[in-house]
Structure formats: structure tokens, C-alpha cells
Write a protein that binds this DNA or RNA. Structure first.
Ligand SMILES: [Mn+2]
Ligand SMILES: [Mn+2]
Ligand SMILES: [Mn+2]
Ligand SMILES: [Mn+2]
Lengths: 217, 217
DNA sequence: TCCTATTTTTAGTCTTATCTAAATTTAATT
DNA sequence: AATTAAATTTAGATAAGACTAAAAATAGGA
């Protein structure tokens, strides 16, 4: 249906729309895609001709209904494969993204459907991100960032905002994983660093860390 | 490492070398790849520059050691994925080839290794073809075609030569599957058709069928 | 409003993998 | 050995997706 490159652009536009709730700029897209702005313009024109995005010169792009569906389908596959790699193939959560970037482009509706069944219809991927169902519906949850909590508040770790290997391995090293309860023992006003308690262990974390951990109260 | 197209050419050369035990001709390769001969020449030159094949103008190609290793790795992945699709995802053996054609190009050594472990190191794919191990060793078996059997001989069905959907569905329809015992009750000299017995049921099959079923005595 | 910095688009190239048409080489047949 | 047929290679073109450099549009500040 769509080329690998087209799918990657659609996915990037989808993520950027969520992030900035506005038309996605050429530069933002070129940064996300790690390409030059001129390449983005070319592709955006093509996507526009295919009615996957709404595009007006100099005004950025928005996904059309058709484009959004395509993007969500790719995201669904990406996250299902991540679950597969972690749950069935012994991968760590910091190792799966790159491979899922490849697997998300495999074309077969039955494959996606059966993978979903095989994994028992997971609702979240290893990083806590929601997996859209076959109709494209995401389950929304009112999570917030750990950095938004105040001293004395407690919550469950439910996801990561950044899912770079470096961050995920930091979490592993400090025994922070999804599902764990985190209590804010203290918060330093000067640098926003926090003293938190996890499994009875105290740990000091910088704002860079706390601003990338999603919590549910 | 190698592009999707390069991998497909290497795989095709590998299969054709097995088939004709000789240098692979440009035309044979263009037929196998479903491209024009001129495209083959271009690609073969590229593979030759990369030392993946030995090529002399007008003399056909042979895989180098390096090329053979790459081809076998792709075949290993193809067959492991086919096993996965059938064993874990409820696919029928006639539905897996196309998807495996996509999956075989996913790049991750760990993925292949873990998939192999997850499937408990299968030695054959759903069509009875051997799965090379991580070092590229194939298990050889002295199978022969059903068409080579004489009246009165019996054997176990161990593989298919043709694995088109049409043929595999014919086999399903007639309850012929790998592992089944087949007895040749009669063989018609004129058209080489056979009367065979499977699970106590008699069935008449044409030479086109019997020449595509591998048997082990 | 005007000027400048930034953003975006256009124009022209490049690479990969294809194709068609033409030229060349090899193989087969007289 | 000469001729013809078949196989193979070369030459030139195309499409996708990327790039660089230059032009054009927009936005923000004086
Ligand atoms: Mn990911
Ligand atoms: Mn993820
Ligand atoms: Mn196959
Ligand atoms: Mn197979």
C-alpha cells in the first residue's frame, strides 16, 4: 500500500501532531525524520497528492483521516512487535525499538491480527505506550510526569517519555520498572531534583529523569 | 549490510546453483527474480564488486564464500519465520511464504538467534525444507520424489518441491500432510499417474502431483 | 512599515534498482 | 567456416528518495 518511507513520514507527522497539537512544520518533520527540509517538502507533496495529508505551502501539514489511519496502523504494529520481542524473545526494553522500526513495515493484516491474539491483546507496549486496537482506538490514561508530583505524593510508574537506551538502562540500573510504586520523599526547589523511594530504597534523581517518567496516581 | 534487492539476488543464485549445479546464467536469474536480463547484469556486476559472487562476462555467476553465507542467512531467517507463522500464529502452510519474503530481510542477529530458541531450534520449515543452523549448516536427507517410487513401495511424506498455494491446498484437500505414510498401490505406465493409499484411503494422483512430493523410505 | 533572520520551497544532482532498445558475444546449424 | 539464433551486455531513460545550493516566503523586531 504505502512505501516504507511514506509510512515513516506518516508516523512522524502523527507523533508531532500529538506533541504540538498544530500543523506540523517542515523543519520539525525534517528533524524528526533526520532528513533535510527539502526532502520533507518533496515527500509532503507526494503524501498530499495521495490525500494522506492536508498541505498548503508554507503552512505545514496535517494528517487526513486516511493518513491518520495509516499512521496508527504502523504504530500498532510497532508496539505489538515490541511486546513480542520482550515477552517472547527475551529482549530487554531498551533493545526493541530499532527492530520494531523494521518490523512495523511488514505488510499482512492477518499477521498483525494473529500477533495481537498470540500476545493476548496487550494494551501497552514495554515502554507503557498504548497499543491501538484493530480499529485504531487508543486507550487514554491520565498519566502525569513524575516531575509534576510534589513532596509526599506517591504513584505508580506507568511509562517513559524518552525511550532511549541510555535512559532505559539508567532505569534498569536503579531498579525502576513499570508497575513500581514511587514516593516523593523530597523535592529540591533549586534544581528540581527529587529524593524518591522505590521498594523501600531511597534514590536521588535529577529533573531530567523525573521529567521523563510517567506516573499514575 | 546488504540491501533487500541484493539479498534476494543472492538467495536466487543460491537456489539456482543447487538446482543446476553450475554457474547461474543471466536468463535463469532474470526468470527467478522476475526481472529483465539487463537488470540482472547490472546487479551481478555490483555483487561482483562487493565480492559476493564470482562473475565473468557471458559466463554466469557463482556465489563466493561470503555470498553463500549471506544467502544462507536469509534462507535461515525465511524458514524460521515460516515455522513461527505456522506454529505460533495459526497460519496455514500455504499462506506463509509471502510474509516470510518480507520478514527474511529484518536485520538483527539477536532476533534470529532468539526466534530460533523460541521455536526450539526447528530443523525443517513447514514445507519440509531444512533450516540451516547459525553456522550455515544444512541437515541433508536422502529424500526422493514420490514419482520415483514403484508399485508396492511405501514411504513417509517429508516435503514439497513446489510450494505454491495451489499445490499445498490440493494436498490439504486430499489430507496429505508431512509425516503421513504413502503406499503406491499402482502406477500407470502411460501417464505416470499413481494410485496411492494414505490413512487407508485410496487416491489417484497425476505425475504433476507425485513429482512434487518428497518421500523418505 | 521596512529589514533581516528564519523557514520553506525550488532547481538541479545523485544513487539504487529498474526498464527498453540496440549492440555484442556465444552457441547451434548448416 | 559461415550464418543464424539465442543469450548477454551496453547505452540511455525513468522513478523514488535523498542531497546541496539558491530563491522565495514568512515572521519578528526596529
Ligand atoms: Mn519504539
Ligand atoms: Mn515503545
Ligand atoms: Mn518460503
Ligand atoms: Mn518454506
Amino acid at each position: 500500500m504505502f512505501s516504507l518511507s511514506e509510512e515513516n513520514y506518516l508516523k512522524a507527522i502523527f507523533h508531532l501532531e500529538r506533541k504540538y497539537q498544530a500543523g506540523v512544520s517542515t523543519n520539525a518533520l525534517s528533524e524528526e525524520m533526520d532528513t533535510k527540509a527539502s526532502s520533507v517538502t518533496d515527500m509532503v507533496k507526494k503524501l498530499s497528492e495521495k490525500k494522506l495529508v492536508k498541505y498548503k505551502k508554507y503552512q505545514g501539514v496535517k494528517l487526513s483521516e486516511k493518513g491518520r489511519n495509516a499512521a496508527v496502523e504502523v504504530i500498532r504494529k510497532h508496539r505489538l512487535w515490541e511486546v513480542f520481542l520482550v515477552e517472547k524473545l527475551n529482549f530487554n526494553w531498551d533493545e526493541v525499538h530499532e527492530i520494531a522500526e523494521q518490523l512495523e513495515h511488514i505488510k499482512s493484516e492477518k499477521l498483525t491480527r494473529e500477533l495481537d491474539r498470540f500476545l493476548e491483546h496487550p494494551s501497552r507496549d514495554p515502554h507503557g505506550d498504548p497499543i491501538p486496537d484493530a480499529e485504531g482506538n487508543f486507550s487514554v490514561s491520565n498519566k502525569l510526569l513524575l516531575s509534576e508530583l510534589e513532596k509526599g505524593q506517591e504513584g505508580i510508574c506507568v511509562g517513559v517519555k524518552d525511550s532511549s537506551s541510555d535512559f532505559l538502562r539508567y532505569l534498569d540500573k536503579n531498579k525502576i520498572s513499570l508497575g513500581k510504586s514511587i514516593l516523593v520523599k523530597d523535592k529540591e526547589p533549586f534544581d528540581e531534583s527529587m529524593l524518591v523511594e522505590i521498594d523501600g530504597e531511597k534514590l536521588r534523581i535529577s529533573n531530567t529523569i523525573s521529567a521523563n517518567l510517567y506516573i499514575k496516581i
